[in-house]
Every structure is written in structure tokens, then in C-alpha cells.
């Protein structure tokens, strides 16, 4: 009954920083490039003292959750949601 897979792995992200906004355009995970077709939701959280920005994004009819740690400047692929 699991609705998603937790990945929690580092990724490389192509991103536009503009007008104070973070706009990821694509990410590379395990050597494969995933173009971000749409950001469906964004939110932030704290991990310890670090602020983390989370993005739910769509690529090829799948939803991925990626996040950016403002303190370490690292991007991660957090989850991949199953399709329904």
C-alpha cells in the first residue's frame, strides 16, 4: 500500500534563480536527465537549523519531490510518487 518510494539521494539540478525565486528546470539522477515540466507545489521546512525548500515536480507523468538545502546548497531527490 506504499504510495511512494523514498529515494533520499543527491542530484544535480539545472535551476534559474530569479527575483528571489528558485526555479528548477531539470535534474540529473543516476546519469539520467529529467526535464521538469511543471512545479505542482512548493513548501519549506527546517532540518535542524537549515532551511530546506521542497518542490513537487512533474516529469513524464510522474511526480518527484526534490529539495534544496539552503545551508549546504545541496539538492536531493526525496521521493518518487506512484502513478494512479
Amino acid at each position: 500500500m506504499k504510495m511512494y518510494a523514498i529515494i533520499d539521494e543527491p542530484i544535480s539540478v539545472g535551476v534559474i534563480f530569479s527575483s528571489g525565486k528558485i526555479n528548477p528546470k531539470f535534474f540529473v539522477w543516476k546519469g539520467k536527465k529529467y526535464t521538469i515540466e511543471k512545479i505542482t507545489f512548493l513548501w519549506d521546512s527546517k532540518v535542524g537549523s537549515a532551511q530546506v525548500f521542497h518542490f513537487a515536480v512533474i516529469n513524464n507523468s510522474s511526480v518527484y519531490e526534490i529539495s534544496y538545502n539552503l545551508e549546504t546548497s545541496n539538492w536531493k531527490l526525496d521521493k518518487i510518487h506512484e502513478q494512479w
Binding site: T40, F41, A56, I58, S61, V63, H81, Q83, W84
Partner: peptide, 13 residues
């Protein structure tokens, strides 16, 4: 609703 917005494939389900 937040989850459906976050994952549009959940909308209507």
C-alpha cells in the same frame, strides 16, 4: 487538497 495539488494524479480520487 494539499496532497492532491502536490500530486495532480490524485485529483478526483
Amino acid at each position: 487538497s494539499v496532497e492532491q495539488q502536490s500530486n495532480p494524479f490524485l485529483k478526483g480520487k
